[in-house]
Design a protein around this nucleic acid. Structure first.
Lengths: 257, 257
DNA sequence: TATATCTGTTCCCGCCTGGGGAACGTGTCT
DNA sequence: AGACACGTTCCCCAGGCGGGAACAGATATA
């Protein structure tokens, strides 16, 4: 469940861990009850019971029929989170319109904990289905969004993230080590946009452009599609132009906020 | 902070309460640190510290600069929550298009814990600003969404919710007691849509139509605007037609899911 | 109707965990 | 240097929490 390079441990609180295990479980599988949860997590029913009570009182979960699901409060929290990130409205608008214009998948991502998290995603009409989903994370070395954001982070942050990185080859083209990565980052900085040439998923290519506020990078915007439609030429030409101008629009609108 | 009619208490876990107090606090005010949180909640720094560690490990919160904010993981959770509710895509599409068509505020809400929670909201170009926000809750007796949903809940559920209700007069028109409420619900069932005639906020009127799946109500869709534009005639004519046909579209598309 | 077997709930006990105080380390203002 | 923020760590001890078991309904099986 957690083969990730563990963070500094410090002191961690068991009850809270249990509570979030329950939440995680309910996220994956809604509508289950006390007994099922207790089995799944290896706790006694009474323990789970008091946790459910607590979470219910907090409106974190809701009793529905005979089972629980996550509460709508999370929608509220999510909208607060988006607001905290920066001017989300502009990003959303720009992503949506680019998706409509091109018909492909357009995403906006930011760095969090050394990974890329998708803040918003829009799919045009002939968009391919991908597994990425708003809020989920992907590695930085195998995605164009990740590499592009990484390229513009402060050098010490790059080092820090790169040090904790575990290069898992997702396809034949995936970057497999730091040297290769640093070269790639340099290339991105030179040309101003990042490429994913079937490095994360076979058959898919992406281009992405950085969105900066002054000198600090906020995130990146990318467009994704099948290699058949995304030829080398289009990727470095038309498509790169698209994401770069979209990034510009966002930058201009965020500048004065 | 919690003047609501308390639920059945049972046993509740203190650490988890503290954890969510921290989350709530960070939702309201991002970027604060250990000391500030400790002061605000009346706990020792060490206590707060271990909680923050736990939450950070869980990716619930993120350290940013010198302070914490809620993590993007919430976006993921939120999208799961929406999926669990029903076919959210259709709802979203229908709400958006109705908002664009009419230029006003359109919302979709469901009942949770005896209140209305907004699942989605879209504002057309000359939409008024309202305080409602996705995920937040409003009382059922003073909103058209609430009354409409309530009208189509099973009778025993209506009783249950009505019993726990505290009628707070928000404007001169707010419903102030059960008799009045039940009459209103009956009227809604007869005409098939609900009205809010400045009962929640002065100067604002709404119409809403129920969205059902077979006999169970899923939620309701509403349109909101200033009384100047929302005359009696338009409300019961054109605007009622709008929400009802939108509700129909949603019903037809959800039916086979 | 009785029996069995699922649920969810409650009770109580004893261990251990989590909350608090205080000391420590570090950086940033005077 | 000093003073005062901040976050972090350490340790203690009480009481909170996890767990087992008993209890209460609801549903199924005979």
């Amino acid at each position: 469940m957690s083969p990730q390079p563990n963070k500094r441990p410090g002191r961690t609180i068991r009850s809270v861990q249990i509570a979030f295990n329950i939440i995680d479980l309910l996220q994956e599988e809604a509508g289950i009850g006390v007994t099922r949860i207790a089995d799944e997590l290896g706790h006694s029913k009474s323990t789970v019971h008091s946790h459910l009570r607590t979470l219910e009182e907090r409106r974190v979960i809701v009793r529905e029929g005979d089972g629980y699901r996550l509460g709508l409060r999370f929608l509220d929290v999510a909208s607060h989170v988006r607001d905290q990130i920066g001017n989300f409205d502009i990003v959303q608008k720009e992503v949506d319109s680019l998706a409509e214009e091109t018909g492909e998948i357009v995403q906006f991502g930011v760095e969090e904990y050394g990974k890329v998290s998708y803040l918003h995603k829009a799919q045009g009409e002939h968009a391919v289905e991908t597994l990425s989903r708003v809020g989920t994370q992907q590695p930085m070395y195998s995605t164009s969004l990740g590499k592009t954001i990484l390229a513009y982070l402060p050098p010490e942050r790059i080092e820090e993230i790169a040090a904790a990185m575990e290069y898992e080859p997702k396809t034949a083209n995936t970057i497999t080590g730091p040297e290769e990565l640093f070269e790639e980052l340099e290339a991105i900085r030179e040309r101003g946009y990042g490429i994913d040439d079937e490095e994360n998923i076979n058959g898919l290519r992406c281009v992405s452009a950085p969105v900066k506020n002054d000198e600090t990078i906020l995130g990146a915007i990318s467009i994704t599609g099948p290699s058949s439609r995304f030829t080398e030429d289009r990727l470095h030409g038309e498509l790169a132009d698209y994401v770069q101008s979209a990034a510009n629009v966002i930058e201009l609108n965020t500048k004065f906020s």
